[in-house]
């Protein structure tokens, strides 16, 4: 399988526990526990209606009201719905990624399983910083479209390629994300992503400050013609992570799509296979303090 196919096909096992407040009194606690597998390249909140439909007969209130007043948490950390599942997972489970080799050695001898446990909370007021979902599902699709417009602008210097997609192609594009259809996705994204990008849409996520999203200006090459690397982008945005001689400090690791990436990797080479379904290259910066 190619890198692109592996990136698109990556999935995570999830156990979602739904807030007991949403259930009719007397329903057993285990009823509110859902096990499912979700693609790293998707928004978990987009799947919520489908997930909660399974439990609706046990729940109080209507689905629309529930979705307007709920949010996801992992270990008391709020998971913002507008980030890809893979990025959210890497931000909270980076330790599993760093210890993957040991885990795989151990997993061959014992019956190990990797499950991401998250909770769906419900309340009259959302926690600070949570963007309310008031126009489901259009709001998510609209948000994702604007993400691609921004990415298109960064790649091409204009959003024309994205804005001139036919209605059919736009629908195909979003449906490909919902249904996990990589052929349709690659077909439409090829019309947007140029072979020689102007700049790379890049977002850096720092585990020590997960609410702060860094989006540095990442040109493919600098004025002297040298190709920009991931290290160059980190250096402009998080210079405190650099050790002497301009290299990344030994306590810092860069993770993209759940694997460790070399800091010297050229952005122009990294972007095409490793970009997320929202058009951005998401890199999680792990610094063990």
């Amino acid at each position: 399988m190619s890198i692109r196919e592996l990136v698109w096909g990556g999935t995570i096992n999830v156990t979602l526990t739904v807030d007991q407040k949403l259930f009719i009194p007397g329903v057993p606690a285990e009823t509110g526990s859902l096990n499912f597998r979700i693609r790293r390249d998707s928004y978990i909140v987009e799947c919520l209606p489908r997930l909660l439909n399974q439990l609706q007969r046990y729940m109080v209130g209507n689905l629309a009201d529930i979705l307007n007043h709920c949010w996801l948490e992992c270990d008391s950390t709020v998971l913002p719905w507008f980030q890809p599942v893979g990025v959210q997972y890497d931000l909270v489970r980076y330790d599993a990624i760093l210890q993957r080799d040991e885990f795989l050695k151990m997993a061959s001898s014992v019956d190990a399983i990797t499950v991401w446990r998250i909770k769906l909370n419900y309340g009259p007021t959302l926690p600070a910083g949570v963007i309310p979902l008031i126009r489901q599902p259009n709001q998510i699709e609209s948000y994702w479209m604007h993400r691609w417009k921004q990415a298109c602008f960064i790649l091409n210097g204009t959003s024309k390629q994205m804005m001139s997609l036919s209605r059919n192609d736009s629908k195909k594009f979003w449906d490909s994300v919902r249904n996990g259809d990589s052929n349709d996705f690659e077909y439409v994204s090829a019309k947007i992503v140029p072979t020689k990008p102007r700049m790379i849409p890049l977002q850096l996520h720092d585990i020590n400050d997960p609410s702060r999203i860094h989006q540095p200006r990442a040109e493919c090459e600098n004025s002297s013609g040298k190709k920009t690397s991931l290290l160059d982008a980190v250096a402009t945005t998080l210079p405190q992570l650099l050790a002497e001689k301009g290299q990344l400090s030994s306590s810092t690791t860069l993770i993209c799509q759940g694997i460790i990436i070399d800091a010297d990797e050229q952005l122009e080479r990294l972007y095409p296979p490793m970009k997320s379904f929202d058009g951005f290259l998401h890199v999680v910066v792990v610094t063990i303090l």
Binding site: H146, Q150, S159, M163, I213, Q215, R217
Partner: peptide, 18 residues
Amino acid sequence: SNSFAPSPQQQVGDLWRQ
């Protein structure tokens, strides 16, 4: 740029630079 709506969580400094 008459094109896209940025995410509300994006910092204006990053948008300005880009």
